[in-house]
Amino acid sequence: MKIFRAGVVLIFISLIHAAERKGTPVQQAPAKYVQLQNPFEGTQSAAQAGQKLFARECAACHGKNAGGIGKAPPLVTPDVSRAAPGALFWVLRNGSMKRGMPSFAHLPEPQRWQIVSYLKSLGPLSQLSVH
């Protein structure tokens, strides 16, 4: 009986742990990344450079206007527009193996921040004509 109870408790703890790890990749970003500031914050040219990088690195999966294609989710969502820049930076750095998104750590940090600048400039879906 004790073993059974211990098993139930372990399963319960595992489920809680699994639940903690669920959510979108943005929601999984550690606090130390969420607190990071975008060095290009408010710079229009950074968003333009980010748009160029997005077209090259991200558009094939997420769509030219970030509207999403198939399993690759749209990025013109409240989850992204409200996300801390550091959380988006963390997702670009790590990707999400589970969701099939590769890491973009091979891009230098300034280029990843430029993509973040572009994503933050997009706003939610209703402000864009996607596709």
């Binding site: 950074a46 333009q48 450079a49 980010g50 160029k52 230098p108 940090e109 300034p110 280029q111 430029q114």
Partner: peptide, 16 residues
Amino acid sequence: PLALAATPDRCELCRE
């Protein structure tokens, strides 16, 4: 890379 940040414009021979 010869430059870490990207330029805003499409370019061929830029350092990035």
